[in-house]
Amino acid sequence: MRGGRAAVFGLAILAVAATSPASAQAPADASEKEIERYRAMISDPMSNPGFLFVDRGEALWKTKRGTKNVSLEQCNLGEGPGKLEGAFAKLPRYFKDADKVLDLEQRLLWCMEKLQGFDTAGVIKNKFSGAGRSPSDMQDLTAFIANKSSGMKYQAQVSHPKEKEMVAMGEALFYFRAGQWDFSCATCHEAEGQRIRLQGLPVLGKPGKPAQATMGGWPTYRVSQSQVRTMQHRIWDCFWQMRFPAADYGADGITALSAYLVKNADGGEIQVPSIKR
C-alpha cells in the first residue's frame, strides 16, 4: 500500500523533472488526472487494486496442480525451496538446475513444468490479461512474489559468469536500432528530461535514481489497463511502440534487458505492486 503511493509520487517527480521550461504550464493529461483520482481512492490502505492480484497469487501459489498434483510452495526462486522473502530482489539470477539466468516469470514457468508437471501452454496464452477478462496466473503470481520483497532493495546478481554475460547482452540489446522507426531502447530511455507527448521517459541506460525509482515499482497496477503488469509485459509493450514484431513471452533476450535494467536499479527500494498510468 505504502508502495503504491510512493511509486505514484515517484512518477510525479519524474514527470516534473522531465518537464522543460517551455512546457512548464502544460496541464496534466487525462491519464495523469486518472492517477490522481486513484491516489485519492487508495487512502484506504486496503483498496490498491494491485492487492487483489497479490491475494489471488497467494492462493494460486498454494494450489495443487499439474500431473504431480503439488503446489508451487516448494519452488526455489533462488533463496531456497519455498523461500519468498527477498527472492524477487535478486532476480534475474543464475539457476544451477536450469543452468541459465532466469527472471521471475521464466522461473515460475520452470517450476510449473518441472515441479508440478503442469502444462504451461494455457498460462502462456493468457500471460497478459485484458480488462474484464479472466485473471492471468502469471500476473497474479508475480504480484504475490514481488510483494514479498516490498521494502527491500534490489540486489542485482552479477557474480556468476552467466549473469555477467546476461547483463552485457542486455546492455547490447538496449542499443540495438532497427525497424520502421529506427528505434532502440536508448532512443527513449537514455537522455535526461525527455518526454513523448506528455509522458516522461525515465533514464534507464545508466545506474542511478531514475532506474531505481522505475524498476522499484514493477510489477505495477496499470490504471490505463486495469491490470497488474509485469516487466515482461512492459518490455513487450515498448517493443510494440518501437514497431518491432510481437515479442515471445519469456524470451531470454527480455530477461537480458531486465537483468541490465535491474543492474542499473541496484540498491533501489522495491515497493510493489505500485500504481502507474
Binding site: 540495438f176 517493443f239 518491432f244 531470454d252 527480455i254
Partner: peptide
C-alpha cells in the same frame, strides 16, 4: 562500444521474436 559483438546481439534480438511471422521478422533486419 560494448562487450558483446553485433552478430551475437542480433541473434539474441531475433530470438525474442521467434514466433513472429516471417514478414515481421524481416522488419528488424538492420
Amino acid at each position: 562500444q560494448g562487450k558483446v559483438d553485433l552478430a551475437t546481439t542480433t541473434k539474441t534480438m531475433n530470438a525474442i521474436f521467434s514466433k513472429a511471422p516471417e514478414a515481421w521478422k524481416a522488419k528488424i533486419v538492420q
